[in-house]
Design a protein around this nucleic acid. Structure first.
Length: 279
DNA sequence: CGCCAGTCCTGACAGC
DNA sequence: TGCTGTCAGGACTGGC
């Protein structure tokens, strides 16, 4: 499931091959995937050819193909989406929902079996087009900032970390990993997160994301990078998918429970529910 | 506004 | 072997 590190891995690759190249044709674009913006699939198909890629950006889990004319194609990979660059001579695999023809007999292809992904085209794309919270690596994302945003929230911190309008880019894997690193129980109420715990959490979020980016993302089931290669970060996960395994810190078995219809993984010993009086 | 339940979707897997 | 049921969950929608 592509979260920030996986999307960043794809972004890095595409940033090395797409800029200054034009979209030469759009042989396929499934209208059911166009779920953002106001332009329908057929209009997008007509509009893209000839547009020259200026840069490849990322905002949270969204990949942004920015064109020279100021417009942008925005792609979210959902649960099972893959974005790959393949030779025109190879056949499209099943569940291919978008194909952009590139110069040099190559195609950028979006494959997404579950169709949880989403596409949108924006004539003018700016910082506020996507309504998202701060980037985890933004200087403004500090312990104090997070503490302030959590202070009136009754939801669990696990739920809140998945709220993209609070901080953008975390999904189930890295939310669990970040809470383990910060020694915070996933059911802890947002308002109960102390200033000190909040600082630990910001540091932990950045650490788990940085480590995963260095390993080109986590491949659990579906994720592969734009070259079709799986990531390596799954070997470095402390809690996600390790239910019953010994905690890397204390040896106690990793627990799992469902929070807001998502499985959460944590160590009962290392992640106490009640925050200490840390101020 | 916050919070929650429902919705979308199909591959993988367990159990018979 | 082949069927059936269950599970995985990101982000949006609507109800309260």
């Amino acid at each position: 499931m592509p979260e920030l590190p996986e999307v960043e891995t794809i972004r890095t690759y595409l940033a090395g091959v797409l800029p200054n190249h034009a979209v030469v044709r759009v042989p396929h674009l499934d209208g059911r995937m166009v779920k953002m913006g106001t332009m329908a699939a057929e209009l997008i198909r007509g509009r893209l050819p000839g547009l020259v890629v200026q840069s490849i950006g990322r905002r949270g889990k969204y990949l942004i193909i920015q064109f020279h004319d100021g417009s942008a194609l925005v792609i979210h990979l959902g649960m099972s989406g893959r974005l790959v660059v393949e030779p025109t001579t190879t056949s499209w695999r099943t569940h291919t929902h978008m194909v952009l023809g590139l110069p040099g007999e190559a195609e950028l292809r979006l494959v997404d079996p579950r169709r949880f992904g989403r596409i949108g085209y924006f004539l003018e794309f700016g910082e506020h087009t996507l309504k998202l919270g701060l980037e985890p690596f933004d200087r403004k994302f500090t312990g104090d900032y997070l503490r302030d945003r959590l202070s009136a929230r009754r939801s669990s911190i696990k739920t809140l970390l998945l709220d993209q309008s609070l901080v953008a880019g975390l999904g189930n894997i890295y939310a669990d990993e970040a809470l383990f690193g910060a020694r915070i129980h996933p059911l802890t109420e947002g308002a109960a997160i102390s200033r000190q715990a909040s600082r630990r959490l910001v540091g932990s979020i950045r650490r788990v994301l940085r480590v995963s980016i260095a390993h080109r993302g986590t491949s659990f089931s579906d994720y592969v990078d734009a070259l079709g290669q799986p990531g390596e970060n799954q070997a470095y996960l402390a809690v996600y998918g390790r239910t019953g395994d010994p905690c890397v810190r204390c040896g106690a078995p990793i627990q799992s429970m469902v929070i807001q219809s998502r499985t959460s993984h944590f160590c009962q010993q290392c992640q106490p529910m009640l925050e200490d009086l840390e101020g």
